[in-house]
Design a protein around this nucleic acid. Sequence first.
DNA 1: CCTACCGATCGGTAGG
DNA 2: CCTACCGATCGGTAGG
Lengths: 203, 203
Amino acid sequence: MSPRASVAAARQTRAAILAHAVDLASVEGLAGLTIGRLATDLGISKSGLLGHFGTKESLQLAVVERAAEIFWHKVWTPVTDTPPGLPRLRAVCDAWVDYVERAAFPGGCFFVATIGEVDDRPGPVRDAVRGCVVRWRRELSWQIELAVRAGELSPETDPQEIIFALGASIMMLNHELRLHGDRTAVDRARRAMSRALDRPPST
Amino acid sequence: MSPRASVAAARQTRAAILAHAVDLASVEGLAGLTIGRLATDLGISKSGLLGHFGTKESLQLAVVERAAEIFWHKVWTPVTDTPPGLPRLRAVCDAWVDYVERAAFPGGCFFVATIGEVDDRPGPVRDAVRGCVVRWRRELSWQIELAVRAGELSPETDPQEIIFALGASIMMLNHELRLHGDRTAVDRARRAMSRALDRPPST
DNA sequence: CCTACCGATCGGTAGG
DNA sequence: CCTACCGATCGGTAGG
């Protein structure tokens, strides 16, 4: 009777669509994510599905946003207990590797998989992905700065240098796991990331 | 008159198709590479184009093969002058970074762009891409072994550790250049790669 | 290499 | 949320 019920149902449907869409996009890519396929998988009509988003691009943007929520929940939330600065950075690296290893999405880390796809295609979707990456790096950069202030890292530390090393290890780890199935890469990535945090700043 | 002329013409057409296809695939991906688009760009009919390859998958395999030829030509050939072992490894790193920086393909390094796409899609195309990566790593591994034997690298060196660090830097560099347009990443990548070659083996 | 065509699927709309 | 439809494009084939 009340509109509440239908509104709640619509929200639930939307959430179910996004849950599946994020998984699908991690494998097929954001472009390979088709409305027909998604609708069939969910037992819904195409137009019913599209009604929740309007256009495919809006769907893609919603998928990126949802993937970012999942990322923060899996990698950042478990770490907010540990003290800021270097301890939290170490905890983040662990959680980050766990997240890639345990493959939150069937296609591996959604963002590692997506970055290569949207790299060369200017538009709102690329901007949204970049925005997520930038936000994440800002958080890392801030923790590095705190570690420097606390004397846990050398005052000459270049945050960008550390972030480069961490991101590089994560991307390579995803690649090793998914293309080569080499699970020894997990420890290699952990070592590379610790080294980046231990290393004295170079010239 | 002689069949030679038409055979030669066909080979030339095939080469022209592949040249454009590799560029296109570096931006649109191997799946986003469509026969219709490719034919239109080249002023050719779809069936005329498809006659050279048979199926889209064969076209994709030919594109991967061609991309590998270009990669070896740009990164390996210029380096065969320098002495094997550590000197050649350093030269390879330089050439590799140049290749990514100068963007041999409009979409950046073809393989970095493609790996994320074929990662999760078993089949001949994925196998072909993986084969290229494996061949490249074998060559790197061999040069590392030569460097160890020559006493240029510590005897406890783990080749896989170095290869991980080099590959990680290259992937991250491609990402920094193409998603963020951050050209300072070029020097960061060079430093990270030298460090990987200088570093004493860790536990 | 071409024209002419095939069935399937794409994103999206009309109208309810 | 649905059915019914749109034009465009997909990979591919027939026949020359």
